[in-house]
């Protein structure tokens, strides 16, 4: 107990003694205020569970997700050995959901890496450099923004060919413009602040100012935005899957599973509903997490 107390005191100190100490202390205080937000913690728990499920899928899944058993097709909920029933080919829905979490996570992780980073790059450069660069970059952004996301993604997938990688690429290509807009808006306010003038007066170049001074301030609001958009991204991926342009059968992608189950929705509702519930839960979790992160990370609030 004494140890934990001294650790807490060490982490909550106002007088950190080294770089590492200062970093850890800031992180810990952020964590404390995040922990105070119950809904955000719920979101975090659901997502942790999702990650664990994805990692331990072979251990958790009661059946092989691809094993067909036509004798046992369209079993209802809680039937023998199939807690969530079976689909039209007699595959265990629960196992497919568990393996499907891997695909969802894969899509989410890739999009979350590609879209905000390209958006951040375009937005901060446009905002900081200004002039013609700004005009050109922002008009390109506007062109991308002008198309509805799913329509543009459809066009990309149609051009690139169906498949999960292309779906990710298509979604990323349609997801970055809003990030570029946010990053540019933030950069415009940051650019004229005194601390940027101050570092310019030390002879710092544009590259250094953008990466070391502007990025750290933009990233927090982007992270918040990404977590809030995650729900949309999962739904877009599911939408592509539903239209047969994302993951291809027999891959247990949640959207594709809904698409398959659609045919039986009136007589065998659970086949489409179970993957729908999974998408709903994960989207909700990301939304809750995003709200909580906004309270912790948004510099506008934390400065008060």
């Amino acid at each position: 107990m004494v140890d934990i107390q001294t650790w807490r005191a060490w982490l909550l100190t106002d007088t950190p003694t080294s770089r590492r100490h200062a970093k850890l202390s800031t992180l810990y205080q952020g964590w404390l205020s995040f922990r105070g937000n119950t809904m955000a913690m719920v979101g975090l728990w659901i997502l942790t569970l999702l990650v664990l499920t994805a990692f331990a899928a072979p251990l958790l899944a009661p059946h092989d997700p691809f094993a067909q058993d036509l004798a046992n097709r369209l079993q209802p909920l809680w039937s023998d050995g199939h807690a969530f029933g079976t689909d039209s080919l007699g595959r265990d829905i629960l196992s497919r959901l568990i393996y499907g979490s891997r695909i969802t996570l894969y899509i989410v992780a890739l999009v979350a890496l590609i879209a905000p980073i390209s958006g951040l790059l375009v937005g901060t450069v446009a905002g900081y450099v200004g002039g013609w660069t700004d005009q050109v970059l922002m008009r390109i952004t506007d062109i991308f923004l002008a198309f509805p996301r799913l329509v543009l993604a459809l066009a990309f997938v149609a051009a690139l060919g169906a498949g999960i990688e292309n779906a990710v690429l298509a979604i990323s290509l349609t997801a970055w413009p809003p990030y570029a807009r946010i990053a540019r808006a933030e950069t415009l306010t940051i650019r004229s602040s005194d601390y940027i003038s101050a570092i310019q007066l030390q002879g710092a170049g544009a590259m250094r100012i953008i990466t070391k001074h502007i990025w750290p301030l933009c990233i927090s609001s982007l992270i918040v935005r990404v977590t809030l958009d995650m729900a949309g991204i999962i739904l877009a991926a599911a939408g592509l899957g539903f239209l047969g342009l994302g993951a291809q059968p027999p891959s247990p992608e949640w959207g594709a599973m809904i698409s398959e189950g659609r045919r039986f929705i009136l007589d065998h509702w659970w086949v489409a509903t179970m993957p729908g519930m999974a998408i709903f839960t994960v989207s909700l979790a990301f939304n809750l997490l995003g709200d909580g992160l906004r309270d912790v990370l948004d510099p506008k609030d934390s400065e008060k």
């Binding site: 005194d194 601390y195 570092i199 750290p216 301030l217």
Partner: peptide, 17 residues
């Protein structure tokens, strides 16, 4: 140069170091 407002002239995410 030293700026007027010390609340605006230091980067909020950078330590003194």
């Amino acid at each position: 140069m030293v700026f007027q407002d010390p609340y605006a002239s230091l980067h909020p995410r950078h330590s003194v170091d």
